[in-house]
Design a protein around this nucleic acid. Sequence first.
DNA 1: CTGAAAGCGCTAACAA
DNA 2: TTGTTAGCGCTTTCAG
Lengths: 342, 342
Amino acid sequence: MSQVPPKRPLTLRDVSEASGVSEMTVSRVLRNRGDVSIATREKVQAAAKSLGYVPNKIAGALASQRVNLVAVIIPSMSNMVFPEVMTGISQHLENTDLQPVIGITDYLPEKEEAVLYEMLSWRPSGVIIAGVEHTDSARAMMANAGIPIVEIMDVDGLAVDSMVGISHRRAGRKMAEAILKYGYRSIGFMGTQMPLDHRARKRFEGFTEALAKGGIEIADREFYSGGSALAKGREMTQAMLERSPDLDFIYFSNDMIGAGGLLWLLEQGIDVPGQIGLAGFNGVDLIDGLPKRLATMDACRKDIGQMAAQIVADRWTEGAVQDPVSHVLTPKLSLGDTLKRK
Amino acid sequence: MSQVPPKRPLTLRDVSEASGVSEMTVSRVLRNRGDVSIATREKVQAAAKSLGYVPNKIAGALASQRVNLVAVIIPSMSNMVFPEVMTGISQHLENTDLQPVIGITDYLPEKEEAVLYEMLSWRPSGVIIAGVEHTDSARAMMANAGIPIVEIMDVDGLAVDSMVGISHRRAGRKMAEAILKYGYRSIGFMGTQMPLDHRARKRFEGFTEALAKGGIEIADREFYSGGSALAKGREMTQAMLERSPDLDFIYFSNDMIGAGGLLWLLEQGIDVPGQIGLAGFNGVDLIDGLPKRLATMDACRKDIGQMAAQIVADRWTEGAVQDPVSHVLTPKLSLGDTLKRK
DNA sequence: CTGAAAGCGCTAACAA
DNA sequence: TTGTTAGCGCTTTCAG
């Protein structure tokens, strides 16, 4: 039933001519809007299908001033964490006409600003953006965009509009408190270089703060950037224990380097968590299946994605300008098998 | 320097009025097109900046019939493989004015069709799509879109237009040949349920085919879906060895379940690769840092992304309709530490 | 170097 | 239930 391949993309007019129905009515059929008789509806659908017509949303968006796109701006795709947030967002948006569009910042503020500018120029119906730290210019763009803006993952800061996340400072504190409670005293920290990863930095700050409150200071620390997290965890754990053999706990800034550390310790026949305890952060499924379950704290990634999407979707359907919303979620601590010593 | 937050997004006209320069000239300045005197240029830039003007690409695209977007359609983001392809694509496109936009299909043909339709309705400048299996309708849409279409990852099939990837059937064969060459004879296979993952299926087919040529039949096999790949690898390896204790090799359809299997075997004190050899597929960095390096085959993910992006970018800049291109890459086998027995 | 006019393909609003 | 008329905010084209 298909036609000759067209050079010029088909337009409504083509469908209109092929079906003998006005452009306007064709448009109504194709969008399922307004009342159209079954007869014409079918005629139009048949014509559109046999021609292989694909609507032009650019023109549609310009005319209707509505764009069914939600800009999602995240630092990276290879971090494990963000795909899960995306899953939550997609899941919620599937019930709506909205579609997520992803932009990547590589943790760079200037790139974030550029990506935001680029995405706003498509006039999306909302923005979901990771973190609360942005350039002044980015902040201004968001404040002036006239669309819902949801800052996610982190609530330690001021939101432009709405906000869904956890307090990483508190997460760090809670982990420190658990570690102290279980009697560990000589504690090392290992994580990514943090100038750009604000959430990791806040966890670290909360962590040291709570330790200080317990009269303890970090016994050793090391930061890395680049490379396989698993391999880094392995190497750095070895190096740190050679340097500071008295450590009885290591707090890793994410589960993957924690997994690397865990594997190395087990290989050495070191008793975990008896001789040394371990904890990571995120609660990623990916490492289910290690010899021992790493203690960790769930960052509520999927929930965050869903709730953020919901805020945007609600404003989209209800149309009205609504008040900013803030949801502060509480991460759950899992002791796993590596934070148990009493 | 910033103004009162506008309800209505700003238009070129606003900048025109604020700067006392015609809309047309403002447009030229903002796009860096045509000759504009330095004086007016600066006047316009100042006005645009102080107002916080963000161009409307929807209108721009409609007027110019040019959209700087490339549709990238992949099955999943949580597969590790696809983020890496994306990295390759992004890297190449960063040198151009093009921007990738991602669509996810969840390995469902109907969803792929829907996503493709949605994306084509934004009139992108090209499509990069995983795999060569598509519904007839999807294939027709691509053939009629009048833009470069690059099917990636897999070259075992007919392309609509261009194609960049590896032969998974050949990859399976090569792995089988290596395994036989090293003297393994009782071989198990473990992988994802494959009706929808054509690439995994083709590897499996190539694998069994090459074994058959060597007079060997798969001794055991098992397929899974869902769950943490690492955990599945662990459980299924245990189950398979209880069922078929004579196995001397297991070929896993991806590195993550292979890693799970490896960890379990090492915990049991089983000699790898002496008593049993292992291999995975993909060559993901993620598992660098395991106690032993898993034998695997690199799927050339980043290269594939870069080459695909290049095909689209070339046509974008050179304008002219060009001939379809096919690049067949050759995956490299790594023996690692788990495929060595002689 | 700058400006005016005429659309791009569609949909809101109104008329029939 | 269907059709007509004006744009949406830009850029192309052509004229100064």
